[in-house]
Design a protein around this nucleic acid. Structure first.
Ligand code: FES
Ligand code: FES
Lengths: 150, 150
DNA sequence: TCTATTTAAGAGTTTATTGTCTTAAATATA
DNA sequence: TATATTTAAGACAATAAACTCTTAAATAGA
């Protein structure tokens, strides 16, 4: 799979949050219910993102999580790298250490091009854009189309 | 990672075999030594490929493995699908079931395009080509450049 | 035929990923 | 201040991926 499950969950949550008001803290429990993601697992992933200042959380009643300014302006690539790390965009397609034109493997030329196209696609896409389009076109954010963008 | 380790090992072995004579059976032990891949693990991966008629093996002294005609004409995509399955090229980037334009997620349009570019890159590249170029340019097939194409 | 060699097959182990559960810390509100 | 609510943190469990080991089957060559 291109992205880990953690990453995919993190992206879905990010898009969810991007579709919400900037100020309000959103309950993780409610989000995990709506997106059908394990609550505790999602919490851990979001903690990674708060550690990277892409989100911020607030404890207690009325508490929850929201995107920071940085997070709202972030691209999918930023989120992916925060969760899965940059390896996908730096590593050799054949898993050899030190991918580079100095010591290319047979796939190198093709791969750096394809890799750049993956990266470019993630870089071009901002969370707010995605959330806006998702809301507008009622794209789904969970298995069945039952997700409600409000 | 884009491809599983099994897949990457399988690809490296496939390129290795493509650089060898069509008729001779190549010792898996020798190949696993040269490519620095666990012998038993590699054997299992190659068994998958023989099951798909991309390779054929022969037991006993002077035994080994070689590409079939089908295997020699195969593209990287064929090898990848034989080992990792077609999921990478059919599944939703957000892991939602049933990726398709009928029930798109917010990433769908971008992803099918990028996915096609990955597939295209693997499809364009045949094993024999890769082996020929690798041999010619002494591209590396293992960690250090010490691999010898003969 | 006997032995050594090599792949096949399957059980078992280790490690990483994914997911669950419990307890602690913060905080709003009664 | 006491309680309920919510995230934080870490231990724990289940599953999957990666890797190892053992035994069986095929076969070349002595
Ligand atoms: S060295 Fe293999 S892709 Fe760059
Ligand atoms: S439905 Fe998500 S990528 Fe197609």
């Amino acid at each position: 799979m291109l992205l880990s499950k953690s990453c995919v969950y993190g992206l879905r949550a990010s898009i969810y949050l991007a579709s919400k008001s900037d100020e309000e803290f959103n309950s993780i429990k409610e989000m995990s219910d709506k997106l059908e993601i394990s609550f505790h697992f999602l919490t851990k992933i979001l903690q990674q993102l708060t550690a990277e200042s892409l989100m911020e959380s607030y404890k207690g009643p009325k508490g929850g999580i929201r995107l920071t300014k940085k997070g709202r302006e972030a691209t999918l690539l930023d989120m992916v790298i925060a969760i899965d790390g940059p390896e996908l965009f730096t590593q050799c397609a054949l898993g050899l250490p030190g991918c580079g034109s100095a010591t290319p493997c047979p796939l190198h030329e093709s791969w750096i091009e394809t890799r750049a196209s993956i990266q470019g696609m993630l870089e071009r896409t901002t969370l707010s854009e995605l959330a806006r389009e998702g809301k507008q076109n009622k794209f789904r954010l969970m298995a069945d189309g039952s997700f409600n963008w409000d």
